[in-house]
């Protein structure tokens, strides 16, 4: 659906996006993750055809963004950063105006506006003035606008920024529902968001794409196997011996906590899940087990690691 080839954007002397290449397949939900100023918005603006790239090419659905702008614009629904709307218009009026601009006929635009109003839960506010709506509703109006012409690709630039947790949840649920019918590209700097919504993550920093994989794969790649924390009540020497004998455990560390319990931090070999083995060990020995958790490297750790200046060659 999206093919980006060696795309570069320079503003004056500054390189905002530096020779990035990636592809997004039809039906994927891809998160573009990066700190502020990483080049996410610039990339999205170039994908939407609003800004030209300095060099490189972008193809959307097989059409070149620079040369077949009309065909591309028909296929994308784009919600820019900060979700600009006309505050003096009413919700239904605005959506209808947008649908008409996007080339829908009179009857078709009426039908589609009704569909997106229901899809985005705007039924209660559809005759209110946009400027008076809460931020969550405004965001949904922006989303409805991006959806109104049934685009194949939806590009959302920070769709949940500035919302309260409840609103974020509803916007996320909405975006998740788009999976399957549409290809979605979302930019954000909020990590759990990507973990929850996206099938794939592109991490951008300093104008470059530093990593591209599923959240799970990224976690596996970064941690080289997950760590399991277990709290077991047992005599210490017996516990140490038992852990030594466990085949799956590569490294372990035992430290006493309160009472008879010991806290064990265990790393499995080649990323296997140790939890069943630990449980069985405790059960066989008749030891008491009060906690058994897998501490995953969160996307946050990966993000920090990848985007830390110095860990990567940034030039």
């Amino acid at each position: 659906m999206i093919e980006v080839n060696h795309l570069t954007k320079r503003y004056g002397g500054r390189t905002a996006v530096n020779d990035i290449s990636f592809t997004v397949a039809r039906g994927e939900i891809v998160g573009l993750l990066g700190p502020n100023g990483a080049g996410k918005s610039t990339t999205m603006r170039m994908l939407s055809g609003f800004l030209p790239g300095t060099s490189g090419s972008v193809r959307i659905g097989g059409f070149d963004v620079a040369h077949e702008a009309d065909a591309v614009r028909r296929r994308i629904g784009y919600m820019p950063e900060n979700n600009p709307l006309h505050p003096e218009m009413r919700v239904r009026e605005y959506l209808k105006f947008r649908a008409r601009l996007k080339g829908l006929g009179w009857r078709e635009s009426r039908r589609r506006v009704q569909v997106v109003i229901e899809q985005c839960g705007l039924g209660d506010v559809c005759s209110r003035v946009i400027g008076q709506l809460s931020k969550g509703y405004k965001q949904r109006v922006g989303l409805a606008d991006a959806l109104v012409h049934e685009p194949e690709l939806i590009i959302l630039d920070e769709p949940t920024i500035g919302l309260d947790p409840q609103q974020i949840r509803s916007v996320r649920a909405l975006i998740k529902n788009l999976a399957g019918h549409h290809t979605v590209l979302i930019s954000t700097h909020i990590l759990p968001e990507v973990e929850m919504m996206c099938g794939r993550v592109l991490i951008m920093f300093g104008g470059k794409v530093l990593a591209s994989d599923t959240p799970e794969n990224l976690q596996r790649r970064m941690s080289g196997g997950s760590q399991v924390i277990a709290e077991i009540a047992a005599p210490e020497p017996d516990l140490r011996q038992a852990l030594d004998q466990l085949m799956e455990v590569e490294r372990w560390d035992v430290s006493p906590t309160d009472g008879a319990f010991f806290r064990c931090a265990l790393t499995g070999s080649n990323g296997s899940d140790l939890r069943p083995a630990i449980y069985q060990m405790a059960w066989r020995q008749g030891w008491m087990l009060r906690e058994l958790t897998r501490s995953r490297y969160s996307l946050e750790d990966i993000y920090v690691q990848v985007t830390q200046p110095g860990t990567e060659d940034l030039e």
Binding site: S48, G49, F50, H86, R98, D145
Partner: peptide
């Protein structure tokens, strides 16, 4: 200034 220029110019007009 309000950014609606961007939404306008990314529609097929």
């Amino acid at each position: 200034a309000s950014g609606t220029f961007e939404t306008l110019m990314t529609t097929p007009v």
